[in-house]
Design a protein around this nucleic acid. Structure first.
Length: 211
DNA sequence: GCGACAG
DNA sequence: ATCTTGTCGC
């Protein structure tokens, strides 16, 4: 068991080495959100591509999966990563940036779900999470989240919403990019619009499975 | 043993 | 994440 975790950690460190912290450069016109809901070993995944200017969904991919890997905090990429990749491969793969439910570099080995997905696909990715990973030695100054003196995330406070979220660099984005992208997706709800829509749809799929 | 856990 | 009713507040 101990060796199993050592191997998993080793893989995560390799992933972390491949991260690029570079600006998006291009003008962001489409933002993709991906979310997964679970019931037992069934997973219902949904990918939503959202047009920022039209404020409309322009692509929707959804599918049911069977999952075997358990949920283990800090090892989420092994459970949910494969699902995200399958949804991505069935999509147009042309989103300007991808929002993932979970952390990016705000992770003990700099290998959160959003980082994994970004490194494997080469896409620009941002991790969005409700809470910081427990035990993580992160420091918060203003709305910036530091890990080992490195500026890796920001606290996202949607307008008119009490609860805040933690957004972090997944791959190929800067803190400035994260601020700009999330501001574009702020529709007054807790979650950025593409993620909110993906969440609603994946939940709906799960619910309808009973019928 | 008990509670907590990025989802 | 999911299991779950009513209830308080905007």
């Amino acid at each position: 068991m101990k060796e199993y975790f050592a191997k998993a950690h080793s893989i995560q460190k390799q992933i972390a080495k491949l991260v690029e912290i570079t600006p998006i450069e291009k003008n962001v016109t489409t933002v993709v959100g991906i979310d997964v809901s679970y019931r037992g070993n069934l997973a219902f995944g949904c990918l939503v591509k959202w047009d920022v200017k039209k404020e409309k969904v322009i692509e929707l991919v959804k599918r049911k999966f069977e999952v075997k890997f358990p949920y283990i905090s800090t090892l989420l990429m092994f459970r949910e990563g494969p699902i995200l990749l399958k949804l991505y491969r069935e999509s147009d793969r042309d989103g300007d940036v991808y929002l993932i439910n979970g952390h990016g570099l705000l992770h003990p080995r700099y290998a959160g779900l959003a980082t994994f997905f970004g490194v494997i696909t080469g896409e620009h990715t941002i991790g969005v999470a409700k809470r910081l990973i427990r035990g993580l030695q992160a420091k918060i100054v203003g709305d910036v989240v530091y890990l080992n003196e490195r500026e890796l995330g920001v606290i996202y406070r949607p307008r008119s919403v009490k609860r805040h979220l933690y957004a972090s660099i997944g791959n190929k984005v800067t803190i400035g990019d994260i601020r700009r992208v999330l501001r574009k997706c702020d529709r007054g709800f807790k979650l950025p619009e593409p993620l909110r829509l993906a969440h609603i749809e994946s939940r709906r799929m799960l619910k309808n499975e009973n019928l």
